[in-house]
Design a protein around this nucleic acid. Sequence first.
DNA 1: CGCGAACTTGATATTTGTCAACTAAGGTGG
DNA 2: CCACCTTAGTTGACAAATATCAAGTTCGCG
Lengths: 248, 248
Amino acid sequence: MSNPLIMKLGYGARLTGDDRAVLQDLTRRTRRVARRTDISPEGERPENVHLVVEGFACRYKALTDGRRQIMAFLVPGDFCDLHVAILGEMDHSIGTSWGCTIVDIPRSAIEHLTAHHPRITRALWWATLVDEGTLRAWLVNMGQRDADRQIAHLVCELLVRLRIVGLVDEDSFEFPMTQDDLADTLGITSVHVNRVLQDLRGQGLLEWRSKRVRIPDVARLIAFAEFDPKYLHLRRRENDERRLSGTS
Amino acid sequence: MSNPLIMKLGYGARLTGDDRAVLQDLTRRTRRVARRTDISPEGERPENVHLVVEGFACRYKALTDGRRQIMAFLVPGDFCDLHVAILGEMDHSIGTSWGCTIVDIPRSAIEHLTAHHPRITRALWWATLVDEGTLRAWLVNMGQRDADRQIAHLVCELLVRLRIVGLVDEDSFEFPMTQDDLADTLGITSVHVNRVLQDLRGQGLLEWRSKRVRIPDVARLIAFAEFDPKYLHLRRRENDERRLSGTS
DNA sequence: CGCGAACTTGATATTTGTCAACTAAGGTGG
DNA sequence: CCACCTTAGTTGACAAATATCAAGTTCGCG
């Protein structure tokens, strides 16, 4: 079983075999989204809910003068816009950097879930609240850390989030973003990103080449970044001994 | 009627007289919280949900070395921790700066609401999602704006949020925070806050003296801050012609 | 193999931080 | 009502982080 949604939600609630089957069924029809394409643009009233199953998408706000702030990375297993329906219009956009594969889920299907599958509903709640916690962690990151630790912190977060959906291989993971994207994420310049990255590589904290990030010493990076995964609220699962620091 | 919760939720959903009565009943027993006091500290599993009815509280994360990032201002009508129960432990704290008055609401009361009052439930959903949108707006603020516009943007936001709960008087509102608090909110130094504030005063954009912010020319401040209140998702209400720019 | 996108570099400017001292304001006890 | 005391706000000199601009260089892909 390599369905990232099921893998992830298992960390938020205890799901039964039936729950898993329902979720599996939900994520059958995938669709490819090209690079630099909006999945859900600002101003729209989305008809479907979007789920990432492969690749990265990001939540971003475009300012009038071309500046852009990325507010979330959406990785496999993440919903892009589970609840915007209640608010009406999107007040920001969801788009891709290098492209990804998603599933379009009609709102009615979500409503059916919340009406008939309490454990799944609870897991979706959990996922929403974890997203909000992640947003808060990003705010702390931007407000309180220098660029080097910001990058380190972000990488630690991705390491955990991708590990739970099975996308971390030994000490590395795919990271299909540009330095410009990272700059727009951290609120700094891509020139500065570049320099800090070289510095981090020099310190042996992380390497990032050809869309793959490698972390030679995870414990050291975590210490450097002052990273504490508590905000991701991962339920400890039985027969899961490698949550954070073990090998895959 | 001056119940801030009812005033606010009216902007998120259409409430009936009965709904209002239920909410009024919910907010009867208030409690005073002293200044610099935690309402809900990190690590706790809160038994009650907390609602601010007077004064300001703030959501913040304390780092190990004494730094602190404020992640939200909680003003009258705002819930502090409506949904944390699902996550278990608080991963941040809620505390006061100058003290405020709150209501403790047992979780069972909220559960009763969601089971029996669909319009209120929807309004609570709305409030939660607006909180998240506000968080995103703060991230954009920190990432993309210099300190002067950051402060201006924050003031514009407060102007709107406080106006809907009836706490804006002409061109001013009470703002019971210190420059240190503002610094921890924007991720800058209180020295810098002080200097930027003087500059803003010099430009005639805003004044802040003895816990009260005054805005001589709202339209000018909005333009300066590039403020767009869309992210607050206020439903337009009939007989409400003064949403943003009018006088009270 | 060539082309465009992404990345890298250097020189310099701007914003923001640090430190340390000082002033002003508000509250409390004598 | 004043003296005191604490907290908040202000200032100056200087340092560090980050931005800007403009010109390369490398990389990945067709």
